[in-house]
Write a protein that binds this DNA or RNA. Structure first.
Lengths: 224, 224
DNA sequence: CAGTGGTCTAGACCACGTG
DNA sequence: ACGTGGTCTAGACCACTGC
């Protein structure tokens, strides 16, 4: 049994409801139990996750219904390699033993050269229009060797979230001079800068990142 | 059995881990099962939620551990009446049959005076320092009559989230002239404006709100 | 080998909504 | 009266860790 049954069921139902109308009722849990040859608790776990992610909603004593498509939970504060056909362009990548002091502090590393830091800077665009510039500072010792040379894995913060917690701060700023031309933003135009820190479950910080977001409405949106 | 057993267990464990150190291991699920006289699935459900909320984390074959206190999930994009000793000051409250057209559109109501709209504007402060100004537009017919005159219930968006989905957009702007003096922000200083729409499970929008946030770092922070 | 979390089963009772 | 989701039980097997 490679993938757990509840995940198979979840994926199956996720497929099936794509072809259904909003607010249409789906089969009851007991019917699914029989059709999918699973126990009710297993079916419920699959449904629980789909509800949690916003694809379904339940009404007690009535049934389980397909959500309006626009209501799926999403968080676009973090770049998403999967869906939204973004284009990524790395403009800097190196490994250093010291970076700016404030960043060293946030990552809780010293200048003793015991731990190296990966720095990467990239431009995220859509339809050839630059949307944001992201700077990453990653403590190398926390990263799997095998991911070190795969940018897409290394810089996809979503992949770290299973075992980490991310705290983000949003700050109104103006664009840094060095990035103004790349983002095509006037130097005094207000933008939003996002600063994030990822910590592992023990609370140790290991990734610091910053993103400078083009002031286009649609970019920064979060649904929950 | 007023509150479900899994919630009682969840609350109990939530209490108990307050007095524990970060990364300390808690009792195993089977031990809890016996101590709390519950089945394993019930104990797991309680733990599942505490893990989901960031209070605990699990390591397979090892145990369940107390998270670093700073890692609890929180979302301060929405004002929180509970924790952070914010002070609220209502500066406007009325019920109207028409508001600005763009807001009518977002709430999907017409000018036919069939549905009235509650408008409320308030200042949120901490330590006597204004942090943000929030404007609410609420379609009255969606609100319980009994909450209509309780501002704290009416304007606590967290209370709606159980049965709703909220989509928020973050925009870099400057402060509106009429609010500059209240927020004590210079008229050309960059701030972040948050625009939110709450929809019920059927996808029908019923609350539109906007908040103008003082450019102080700590205000807008989100952990997940 | 004993203990852990991850998954799964096949039932059960409840409160509530609808015909 | 029947069907729904919400809760709960008392087991079970698995893969893995640490001693």
């Amino acid at each position: 049994m490679e993938t757990p049954k509840y995940l198979q069921i979840k994926n199956l139902i996720h497929e099936e409801i794509q072809h259904m109308a909003s607010n249409e009722v789906i089969e009851s849990e007991r019917v699914l139990t029989k059709r999918l040859n699973a126990s009710r608790m297993t079916v419920r776990r699959a449904l629980d996750e789909l509800v949690e992610e916003g694809f379904l909603y339940r009404e007690k004593n009535k049934g389980t219904f397909v959500s309006d498509k626009s209501l799926n939970k999403k968080n676009t504060l973090v770049s998403d390699t999967e869906n939204n056909n973004s284009e990524f362009h790395i403009i800097n990548f190196d490994v250093k033993y010291s970076v700016k002091e404030d960043i060293m502090k946030k990552l809780n590393v010293g200048f003793d050269k015991t731990s190296s830091i990966i720095r990467a800077i990239r431009v995220v665009s859509r339809n050839n229009k630059p949307e944001k510039i992201e700077e990453f500072y990653i403590v190398r010792s926390f990263i799997d060797e095998k991911n070190l040379n795969k940018f897409d894995k290394l810089l996809d913060l979503n992949l770290y979230l299973k075992n980490s917690t991310m705290t983000q701060k949003l700050m109104p700023t103006t664009v840094p001079a060095k990035y103004a031309s790349i983002l095509k933003v006037a130097i005094d135009e207000p933008i939003i800068t996002i600063e994030g820190i990822l910590r592992n479950n023990s609370g140790i910080p290991y990734i610091y990142y910053r993103s400078y977001n083009h002031p286009r409405n649609e970019i920064i949106e979060i649904t929950f």
